[in-house]
Each structure stands twice: as C-alpha cells, then as structure tokens.
C-alpha cells in the first residue's frame, strides 16, 4: 500500500511506483489481515477493509514515515473495530505513550484515548507469537533507534519484512559469519524478503550511518539469507519512476552476475500483489 521511504512523495514523476510511505498488507489463508507498518499507505488499506474490522498492525519503529498513516486509518474511527498495534519496546516510555506523542496536540486534533475503536498497544515479545494461522517473530535490526524486522510464517511460506536496515554499516556482508549479520536469522530462507534499498551505490557514501541500505548491500543481504524472492523497498523520495527503473535494471544485472535469477528480484510498487504458495499473500 506504500513503498516509499522517509516522506510521502506524490506527483506525476512517482505515479508508477507510488508516493505513499511504508505499509504492506499481508492476508493469511483464513482472511486475517496484518498491516506491516502504518505509513501513509495504510490510509487506502483502511478504506478497503470491512466494518467491523479486526486487524494487527506490526510497527517496525516509530519514525514518522512508518506511523503517519495511523491518524488517517478509517477503522481507528469505527467503534466496532479491534486494532492491535505491535512495536518495539523502549526503556524511555511505553509503546502507547510514544505513539501518543504523534496522536496528540499539537500534531493531531484527536488523542489516542478519544479513538472510538478498541485499540491496544503491545511491545513485541522476545518469543514467537500467533496471529490467526500465522507465527510471527520480531527481532531488533540495525537502524537508528529501536527498530524491528518481522517474519510471518504460515505453513511453508514466510515473509520477512525489514524496511529500514543498514546491515553493512561497518561490516562486509560477504565475509561475516551469519550470526554476526543483523537480521540474518530472521530472514534466513524466507520465501519473500521485503528489504530496504533506499540508496544507489553512488548515493550511499554520503549517507553512511543513516540506517539504510545501498543497492549492493541489499542484494548481498538477500543473497546471504537465501531469500526465495526479494522485493527492494523504501524508495528514496528523490527517486523518480525513471530513476527507479534504472535502479531496477542495475539491480537485476548485479543479481544475475552473482548467480541469481531475474525473476527472484523486483522493486516494490504500490498496490502490487504477490501470492505466496497458497497461504500467505502480500500487497505493498
């Protein structure tokens, strides 16, 4: 529902890949819907859901491009909706209190306590938990501030979502042992990996330490974890559709040079749907 990073970037030059920020809808075999992040893309997801709705929202972190859509998520304003929001714990404050910094004056006309829906906030546990027929796992990953990646597994299918990730910060992903690669265990052998690829290789040197991956680092990570398919995600807001087309071509070329199949790799595109086997389906 949104594949852009940092800030919404609507306009004629971003129509094809989309300008909404991070949100991925995952639909399980029994119809259970999970939203991965709540960037501005969650607004259109909310409009497509029935009333009443029961939904779990898995937040990777609380940077604005991952929570901005919460205020515009229609089910939050429907009294019969049941919304569970999961996110990283932090010692400074509870998840609810940290989100309330955004959903409160002067940034918002309403307060969390005024939302008419049944909403609960839960810090992710250290162990796996169940949502419908799926097993969900969260793990801390390398980004600025407390940040999680998620893995959702149903049957033989698994989706790993790490939209903001800089595993190559101070490290060479080709040489490191797996246990020392941020996010490796979470993503290992995932059917589908949705991973940060904010920068081209030329742009990355000016953004080292900002918490995002270059194209080469994203591909190296995907190769190391043996992802079945990889979707490059969290497009930089300055990247037009044409620029992303060029990035896609370079990525596929590099991927194939290192033994990958071109069909395993694509750039995230708003409203793109991917069916995984039978049980788990996603749309960005």
């Amino acid at each position: 529902m949104g594949a852009r990073g940092s800030v919404p970037s609507p306009g004629p030059e971003t129509n094809r890949y989309g300008g909404n920020t991070s949100c991925v809808q995952v639909t399980l075999s029994d119809g259970t819907v999970i939203a991965l992040d709540a960037g501005t893309g969650i607004r259109s997801l909310g409009l497509s859901l029935p009333d009443p709705t029961r939904i779990n929202i898995l937040l990777t972190h609380l940077h604005l491009d991952h929570i901005q859509g919460l205020m515009f998520f229609a089910p939050a304003f429907q009294p019969r909706s049941e919304i569970t929001i999961w996110g990283p714990e932090a010692e400074e404050a509870s998840l609810e209190d940290r989100i309330a910094r955004y959903i409160s004056a002067p940034l918002s006309p309403v307060e969390v306590r005024e939302l008419p829906c049944d909403v609960s906030f839960r810090e992710t546990p250290a162990t796996e938990w169940q949502i419908g027929p799926a097993t969900v796992r969260a793990a801390s990953v390398s980004h600025r501030g407390p940040t999680l990646g998620y893995r959702i597994t149903e049957g033989e299918c698994s989706v790993c979502y790490i939209p903001d990730h800089e595993p190559a910060l101070g490290a060479d992903l080709d040489d490191l042992e797996p246990e020392w690669i941020s996010g490796f265990e979470l993503a290992c052998d995932a059917s589908l990996l949705i991973h940060d690829c904010q920068y081209t290789d030329d742009e990355y040197p000016d953004h080292v330490g900002w918490g995002h991956s270059s194209m080469s680092a994203a591909l190296a990570f995907a190769r190391r974890v043996r992802a079945g398919r990889t979707v490059l995600f969290h497009h930089d807001p300055t990247h037009s559709d044409d620029a992303l087309d060029r990035l896609h071509d370079r990525a596929v070329t590099r991927w194939c040079e290192t033994g990958g199949e071109p069909t395993q790799l694509e750039l995230a595109c708003e409203r793109r749907e991917i069916a995984l086997g039978s049980p788990v389906g996603t749309s960005a």
């Binding site: 910060l169 797996p178 246990e179 690669i181 974890v225």
Partner: peptide, 15 residues
C-alpha cells in the same frame, strides 16, 4: 530455516 542463533544486535553493532 536453518540459521545459527543470532547475536544480540548490540554485540553486532559493537563488533
């Protein structure tokens, strides 16, 4: 999935 147990992120960043 057959991945080794992950080191804590803080150790990874420290390394």
């Amino acid at each position: 999935m057959n991945a080794p147990p992950q080191r804590a992120l803080e150790l990874i960043l420290a390394r």
